[in-house]
Design a protein around this nucleic acid. Structure first.
Lengths: 343, 343
DNA sequence: GAATCATCTCAAACCGCTTTGGATGCTTCA
DNA sequence: TGAAGCATCCAAAGCGGTTTGAGATGATTC
């Protein structure tokens, strides 16, 4: 069932039927209702391919997911982020196009998406410091919103980000208030922008209390259970071990907890831990009482917001860039307590 | 730059240029090379929208991700599965279309995808027993491949699945061989087909040694850390606690481990644990020596295979359905040991 | 009663590609 | 020598919508 059939069946021209269905004013209300009814009755759905060609719009948004070829890790927050964004697209009649590509072919992927006219805009994931994608997308003229920020970028751009700096600043202060003096940072990879900001929040909070950051208490690695375990184990084995850990993710923290327990210590009593909790649906931080004290910000909600911003950018093509800074909440769980000897 | 421009620029008709680029035989080799060169020079990419309309093919595959409205959990294996499938699509010039929908609107989503002509086929995720989607997709004539199986389905269908039954049968036998008699099953939700098969493997292996399954040692729930913790904690608190756990996922198992340690026991010594390991990129089961003894099967590889099968089905429209059964390997880690008192 | 106008509808062009059904010129073979 | 065959190329008709520009109709105004 296509427009033409529907039109002849109604004794109308395709033009009128099209206009009736798309809410144009120059069609009689009675006619419109007749058309609407017939469309519903015969279960008519306009062919997306035809609409796209005719209007020149893709009615689709691209998410390019680069997979680092060195360490083939998909970001664990990805599923929830996509779920959030997907809701927004569904509600607005947009399709979500996913491209999973090796990171060295990422640039050509964006260019092709544009040349082929496959999408109206894209979401930029996991921005790095001075991320080259910002200049690239500006250059090829593809609307985009960044999930996160890219410090040092010369050009303005749209973004939605968590205030990672403040979150880790607050978390560090919280540990300092509990009397911890040797606080370790188990950070994500520090070419990632969010990791840089978190470190700066941590370092600054220490500095504000006159404590110099100790390089031996800072690691930066993939946010996996194993990496968290190894980093924490190594630190706990030193002569002057940390009494608290600031950990970049729930998954890393599971490794940290394993190391703490392997060392015969008790988390929350001997060693405190604060994590950043992305509020992943499949990895909740406990229920009534959180397992980990955490800075929390829902990545799914971020997905929704990023998608909404992009659709808005596509629709209105604003000249000035839009920003949205989300604050993480600090929630108290069972993994923190006073520094040993201060109880 | 479109076909017509390129054609006039070359002094050829659009027909010839199209044929030259698409490898049709009725064009002079010299002409073809000239066209190819010009296309590359002017960075020509055919407009996907136009190709789609002209050929009637969507050149896209749909993944419909239902989000259960009761418990809004995205499947943690999803990211890796998508990554695997995405690689296949990229290699073959297909787009991947993701629809995140509330599960009660799943049926209409499939219907719309078909009516709108948005995809050439779909992947069915997380099949349940007698999954209605199989009849539905047959009915609306949308090619599909199921990741998993749907026991009790009257109709034949294409699938790629892990031999869950055998995996859990072997794992149970392995624990029995170690002298464990009270083996608990922390299963996924048992309206999911994979969970049913796992339980049947477990129950049958026990029965083969003359052990009747004990309902108090079997739970079926969402595969989250918290659910794993609660289930294990409750069982360990009984008068006749299990000495071993068979756990459906890495994430559940982290909760089980937490419960074991909270009970003052040591995993691998006092209590054994075997998990099913989907080999998620962001949640590796240790490195050289696995943390958990596990039945392992890469879900990313499964994603690749499912996607390949679907593209094949789309291309060749075979009459008989295709199947692919993957065997999980049993890998020995640090979480299993002889039953206490049998050391 | 003619001119004006608003309202409703339609024919046809267009989006950018594929594909059918020739057309053309050249070679081959009886 | 003429018909058949072959290698190349092209014009034009789709694909299924949207959109422009114009026509028909009936009501309103003067």
């Amino acid at each position: 069932m296509n427009l033409k059939e529907l039109a002849t069946q109604l004794g109308l021209s395709p033009t009128t039927v099209s206009r009736a269905l798309n809410g144009y004013p120059e069609v009689n209300e009675a006619t419109r209702e007749r058309v609407m009814a017939a469309a519903k009755r015969s279960n008519y759905r306009p062919n997306t391919r035809a609409i796209r060609l005719a209007t020149g719009r893709a009615l689709a948004v691209g998410h390019v997911i680069p997979i680092a070829t060195r360490h083939e890790i998909v970001n664990p927050i990805f599923a929830d982020f996509i779920a959030g964004a997907g809701e927004t697209y569904s509600r607005n009649g947009y399709d979500m196009l996913l491209s999973v590509v090796a990171d060295e072919t990422e640039e050509t992927t964006y260019r092709e998406l544009k040349l082929r006219g496959a999408v109206d805009g894209v979401i930029v994931h996991s921005p790095r410091r001075e991320d080259p994608r910002i200049a690239l997308l500006n250059d090829i003229g593809l609307p985009f919103v960044v999930h996160g920020r890219a410090s040092g970028s010369a050009l303005p751009y749209n973004w939605v980000d968590v205030n990672n700096r403040r979150a880790f600043h607050r978390a560090t202060e919280f540990l300092l208030d509990l009397g911890h003096l040797r606080i370790a940072l188990i950070n994500g990879l520090e070419y990632m922008d969010f990791a840089l900001r978190r470190r700066s929040g941590y370092v600054d909070a220490l500095a504000a209390r006159g404590i110099a950051a100790d390089a031996r208490l800072m690691t930066s690695d993939q946010m996996t259970e194993v990496a968290g375990f190894q980093a924490a184990q190594a630190m706990l084995a030193t002569a002057d071990p940390p009494t608290a850990f600031l950990v970049a993710s729930m998954i890393s923290a599971m490794g940290v907890r394993r190391a703490i327990e392997a060392a015969g210590l008790v988390m929350g009593r001997d060693v405190s831990v604060i994590i950043h909790d992305d509020d992943l649906s499949y990895l909740k931080n406990g229920d009534a009482v959180p397992i980990f004290t955490a800075t929390r910000s829902s990545v799914r909600e971020a997905g929704r917001l990023v998608a909404e911003m992009l659709l808005d950018v596509i629709a209105t093509a604003p000249t000035a860039p839009t920003h949205r800074l989300l604050e993480a909440e600090l929630i108290i769980g069972q993994s923190t307590g006073p520094a040993p000897g201060r109880g």
